[in-house]
């Protein structure tokens, strides 16, 4: 009685959850010993939106060969999968679409496949949801920064990275950027390379971007860092 609200809430969640999972669990026709990522990890999507590419995972047997008909189950706090459970196809792979939740930041996706003797093999993927601030950051990055900071070219946009020395880092490069403080990054974006005694080939954006935009840029860089950026301070879960 005391937790009436909670109960209703939980029941509603359960119901909502049930609607998304397929009514019947498919029966595994075979069992593997190992599950690996083929593609789909470390993607970016706006909060509540589907990831641009599906998750593709492969189940292998003890001999290292792909296993057909193995059951793979997906979990992830706040993540919706279609389908949430599937059997591997003839090449030992499953393909599912995933939609991230309401909150910006990291989502952990776990895929699990039962082993024949009991127990399960599992693996985790990291996916990243962008909130308003990171979305603004991403748009600014795509407009101003990406040509110099991303080695990849597209038909619309040729990378300029090779023309620069020292070469700038990609914003996903957590190993490097996580070590630079918020203040220093902000300073570098606002006042250019020379602000930190670095190359003037990094232009100053302080007169082009508003302070809120620089903050958004910083938030984007922090959010997509790989390995993830740890905010200083403690986290309280439940």
């Amino acid at each position: 009685m005391k937790r009436l609200g909670l109960l209703i809430f939980a029941a509603a969640l359960l119901l909502a959850g049930c609607r998304h999972s397929s009514p019947q669990t498919p029966k595994p026709a075979a069992y593997g010993t190992q599950i690996t990522e083929v593609s789909g990890g470390k993607q970016l999507a706006q909060v509540g939106s589907p990831l641009p590419q599906p998750l593709v995972l492969q189940v292998n047997g003890a001999d290292g060969n792909p296993v057909t008909g193995a059951l793979v189950t997906f979990h992830g706090d706040g993540v919706q999968f279609t389908p949430a459970q599937a059997l591997t196809d003839s090449s030992g792979q499953v393909t599912v679409e995933a939609q991230l939740g309401y909150n910006p930041g990291d989502y952990q996706v776990t895929a699990e496949t039962p082993k024949s003797g009991g127990g399960a093999a599992s693996m985790s993927l990291r996916e990243i949801a962008l909130g308003y601030e990171q979305t603004v950051g991403r748009m600014l990055n795509d407009k101003y920064c990406i040509r110099c900071h991303d080695p990849e070219s597209t038909p619309e946009r040729v990378s300029n990275l090779d023309n620069l020395s020292p070469a700038p880092h990609q914003f996903t490069d957590g190993a490097t950027l996580n070590r630079i403080s918020d203040a220093d990054l902000t300073n570098m974006i606002a006042h250019g390379g020379p602000a930190l005694n670095k190359s003037p080939q990094m232009p100053a954006y302080g007169a082009t971007l508003k302070p809120a935009e620089i903050k958004a840029m910083l938030s984007y860089i922090r959010t997509i860092a790989d390995p993830p950026y740890q905010t200083p301070g403690v986290k309280y879960g439940k």
Partner: peptide, 9 residues
């Protein structure tokens, strides 16, 4: 060339 590094773009 030096202060503003215009040649980067």
């Amino acid at each position: 060339y030096s202060k503003y590094g215009c040649q980067s773009c």
